[in-house]
Design a protein around this nucleic acid. Structure first.
Length: 269
DNA sequence: CCGACAACCTGTGAGC
DNA sequence: TGCTCACAGGTTGTCG
């Protein structure tokens, strides 16, 4: 379920580990989106300096060298106590001083665990990521500039990580509803005022989702993993046929760029 | 530049 | 109950 807010909530949950050393790395299944590199073993003994996020990537700064984590479609991280037996699809453990284990579970194995000795933003997967939607420089003007001259639909622009990093299918849909913009609208057709409204809607949607997930942070350590974290009161996503929460018209679903899109035909133009 | 499509995987829920 | 099918929150790469 991970889009930017879920990754950010996870990042915050890992912050208390900063300052501790990595005691061991266990890879039970290296076949993720890309093979888990054997160089991971070289992180044993390193101290965790910071936990950052770039788009949907988690960056564990180990003093120069970085671990790069991506949760893909179905990945999640949990902190468990050392000695906890691994369940199905729990592919990678990063054992931390203090009898804790950072455990990656990823049934579909679309996630990734990678590492780099250089600057993580230079890593090929991160080098071409676009603007952070929660960074101060992301505003209506920036969005308007990104959309100028683009013939693609606004929803596909929002989900293009090379332009805006971290927006996925759910939050793109929800933000477009909040801004009253039809997902199939040509990006270049949005006025500056429209872009300002949309940029605000994006930030508001992401912040609300982070807040909702953040309230369950306490459950992160030692939870059974099935706690309904990250619950979102979806206004359109996954609600085809159900009444719009604002006007009552039935929510519609259509396929756009291979992904399901949901919108209210009356509220979104 | 753009859209369409396939690929990587497994789990789940709907319908029969 | 058990089977089959459609579909799922991400990303990369190819083709026309």
């Amino acid at each position: 379920m991970p889009e930017l807010p879920e990754v950010e909530v996870t990042r915050r949950a890992l912050e208390p580990l900063v300052g501790r050393r990595i005691r061991a790395v266990v890879v039970r299944e290296p076949r993720l989106r890309w093979p888990v590199p054997p160089e991971l073993a070289g992180f044993v003994g390193r101290r965790l300096r910071a936990v950052r996020r770039r788009g949907k990537y988690l960056l564990l700064d180990c003093g120069g060298a970085h671990l790069i984590l991506h949760l893909g479609m179905s990945g999640s991280l949990r902190l468990v106590r050392a000695g906890t037996p691994a369940g199905p699809h729990e592919h990678v453990d990063i054992a931390i001083a203090g009898r804790l284990v950072l455990r990656l579970r990823d049934p579909r194995r679309f996630g990734a665990v990678l590492c780099t000795g250089g600057a993580p933003e230079m890593h090929p997967l991160l080098a071409h990521l676009g603007v952070e939607p929660l960074a101060p420089e992301f505003d209506g003007a920036r969005l308007h500039a990104l959309a100028r001259g683009r013939r693609i639909s606004i929803k596909q622009l929002l989900m293009d990580a090379r332009r805006i990093a971290g927006l996925g299918n759910i939050y793109a849909s929800e933000a477009l509803f909040l801004a009253g913009i039809h997902p199939a609208r040509r990006a270049s057709s949005l006025s500056a005022a429209c872009c300002a409204r949309l940029a605000r809607a994006i930030r508001r949607t992401l912040r609300a989702a982070i807040r909702a997930g953040g309230s369950t942070l306490r459950d992160f350590v030692g939870a059974d993993g099935t706690t309904g974290c990250f619950q979102l009161h979806a206004r359109v996503y996954g609600r085809a046929g159900e009444p719009c929460r604002r006007c009552g018209a039935p929510i519609r679903r259509f396929v756009q760029g291979q992904r399901a899109s949901y919108y209210c035909p009356r509220c979104q133009r």
